[in-house]
Computed example of a mutant assay.
Amino acid sequence: SIINTNRKTSKPQPRGTNTINALFNKLRAFFNWCLDNEKTTNRPFKNYESTPDLYGTPIYITIEERNQILNTDLSHRPQLAIQRDIFIFQCLIGCRVGDLYKMTSSNVINSAIEYIPRKTKEERSATTRVPLNDTAKGLLQQYKGKDKEGRIFPFISEQKYNEAIKEIFRLSDITRSVTVINPTTREEEKRPINEIASSHLARRTFVGNLYKKVKDPNLVGALSGHKEGSRAFARYRDIDEEMKAELIKMLD
């Protein structure tokens, strides 16, 4: 099997402020719709002010680490090897997992992937086009026709995919310690990167490595599907400051 599926029933855990904010924003939108359509006169969010979301510096892997994962021998875990290949492909096109799971051969056009990001579709229906490098083309060819539903890869559930990614990192010896924000306590803590690895880390890997090279959020955003002026890139500028500090130290 891909991962150990034996689980114990657990009690609900405390949720972080960012998660609560996201849920409340959806609930507020629902009540606003009810008000606009005269379904209710209640205004439960009239005086509600949410706590600002808190994000740490984006965590992602280097190109060298990505290649280390790609070259790790997983022949003894063939199902896990499939998920590794999917993760690598996601690192190479930078899309959200929800968009990735909907892709079929029709999204492959003239050596590029074309899709309309689901998250921003209602705000703008611009097509995102990402040219494919040789590795990405090779992976597509390797799995061509393998999915019964006609998708570009034989996907599993998103939850199992995320669990598989953590195991892939461990087997690839990508276990370095990173500093993250605990979503519940909002305090910094050290965690092995394999324990926090997920499909979204593939997207951050694409964005982070490109941003380090070109420093142009609009150009990178055109490839990642971020809308223009996205606040997400402000967090990548923190990484840029670290690079500048390292360069200045070279003058000592």
Rank of each mutant, 00 (worst) to 15 (best):
I2P: 12
N6I: 05
N6Q: 12
R7M: 02
F24C: 12
T40S: 10
N47T: 05
S50Q: 09
T51Y: 13
L54S: 15
G56D: 14
I59D: 07
E65L: 06
I69E: 04
Q79R: 08
Q79F: 15
C91H: 11
C95F: 07
M103V: 06
S105A: 14
V108P: 05
Y115E: 05
I116Y: 06
P117H: 00
T120Y: 02
E122N: 10
T127N: 08
R129Q: 06
P131F: 00
T135D: 14
G138P: 04
L139T: 03
Q142L: 15
G145T: 10
I152N: 01
I156K: 01
E163N: 09
I168R: 00
L171A: 00
I174T: 05
R176H: 13
R176P: 01
S177V: 15
I181L: 11
R186M: 04
I193C: 09
S198Y: 02
S198F: 06
F206R: 11
V207K: 11
K212M: 14
V214M: 10
N218K: 10
S224A: 12
S224D: 00
S224R: 15
A234R: 15
Y236S: 02
E242S: 10
I248Q: 13
K249N: 13
M250Q: 15
D252A: 10
D252G: 14
